[in-house]
Simulated scan of single mutants.
Amino acid sequence: MPEDFVIARNPEEGSSLPYVLRIPYGDRGVLLKARETWPRTSKVYCHRFEEWPENAEIIERVPVTSCVRRGAAIDLVLDRSREARSQFVISYAKGGRQAIFWQTARTAKQARPHVRTPRARASGVAELAIVVDSQERYAWKFSDQHVVTDRRRLPAGDYGVMWEDELVAAVERKSLGDLVSSLTTGKLKYQLTALAALPHAAVVVEERYSRAFQHEVVRASVIAESLAECQVAFPTVPIVFAESRKLAQEWAYRFLGAAWVAAGQDRPGEEYFADLATGAELPAAEPTVAEIRAWAQANGLRVSDRGRLSAEVRTAYDAAHRAE
């Protein structure tokens, strides 16, 4: 097994990945082409290849302290004081194509927005029933949302909500690689055609818009023009860049919840107005954080002007309003 981590220049002319790497893992090592020699400012896309080029010019050869695989990642620790720890994350784009990203703790942190998703239910729905397309790989779990899922074949989109067995809203999920691929092959226009036939639909991308202009192969102008053409041709189906997988999931949950409630208002069924039919009152909407904070301040409770509310404040609010 190779003992050093090796970086060399890629002798392949015209390659968009000008460096080759050898990770000392396994009998022959893992060989990758890469755009950079280290993920200093952002994650670095890498691509597998089979044979180490004989005429490759070695740039760096660094002894390795540790090289261990942990699930879908290889953790690499180099024997030097700076730029010593990094990780190669193995993922799969839609269609099964392997994608490898080289990152450090710093670049991984930069890729994650520093936000907490809200805990309130989407449109006040106690438990939203979301249908996940049976062909969706690595589907969202909705573990942080009030959701129950069911897998079946959808005529459009990857996630949807039904009203009386009719698909009333759908969301097509895209990684950045899948988005660019479907744009350049024309597949996205067929998907948008199917989505546009629904009352409510959207495409959600698990990445920032700016990252679309850093693609390794397709020119930024081609991607920008193709996206603009799709939005003009299908104005009722927004293409939303949600910055991360977690935020894309949260956006889809809110969108599908609002669409389901709208479907019930447009064509209510027996279940939608079951409480009204029996003369019972509909449950009140959940209070917002601002409303609870204002109540606490008015009643002399200690509460910060910003941030999350303590459990004690929420308990006091609930107790007071149950008494009412």
Results as ranks from 00 to 15, higher is better:
Q98L: 15
A93N: 06
Y190N: 14
Q191I: 02
L188C: 10
R137V: 14
R82Y: 13
V89S: 12
V132A: 06
G95C: 04
S182W: 08
R85L: 10
D150K: 14
I74C: 00
A139C: 09
R112L: 14
A126G: 06
R80M: 03
L78V: 07
R80F: 01
E172L: 14
E172D: 05
W102T: 06
A120V: 07
R152L: 09
L128I: 03
T185M: 12
T65F: 02
S182D: 04
G71Q: 09
G124E: 08
I74M: 08
D150L: 15
L192A: 06
G160T: 05
L78N: 08
R80N: 04
V147H: 00
G124V: 09
A84M: 06
V64Q: 07
L154H: 03
T117K: 11
G177F: 06
G177E: 01
T107I: 08
F101G: 12
T185W: 11
V148K: 15
Q98C: 10
A169K: 01
S86H: 01
Q103E: 14
P118Q: 08
S134A: 10
Q191V: 13
L154D: 00
E127A: 13
S175M: 05
Q135H: 09
E166F: 07
Q135T: 13
A169S: 13
D165Y: 09
L176K: 04
A156N: 07
A129M: 13
P118H: 08
A105E: 14
K174D: 06
R119F: 08
D150P: 00
V77N: 05
R112T: 02
S66E: 06
L76H: 04
F142W: 07
V180A: 01
W163K: 11
E172K: 13
L76W: 02
R112K: 12
S86Y: 06
A111M: 07
A120K: 15
H146F: 10
S182P: 03
L167D: 00
W163Q: 12
D165R: 15
Q110N: 13
T65W: 01
D150T: 12
V64A: 11
Q87H: 12
A108R: 09
H114M: 14
V68L: 13
E83R: 10
D144F: 10
W163I: 15
G124P: 02
R116V: 10
E127I: 10
D165P: 14
A139I: 02
R173C: 02
V147W: 01
S81K: 05
A99Q: 10
Q191R: 14
A111W: 03
V161R: 05
R80A: 03
T104I: 04
A84F: 07
V125E: 11
R69P: 09
L78Y: 04
Q135K: 15
R116F: 15
D79H: 06
V64F: 05
S175L: 07
A169L: 07
D144Q: 14
D133C: 12
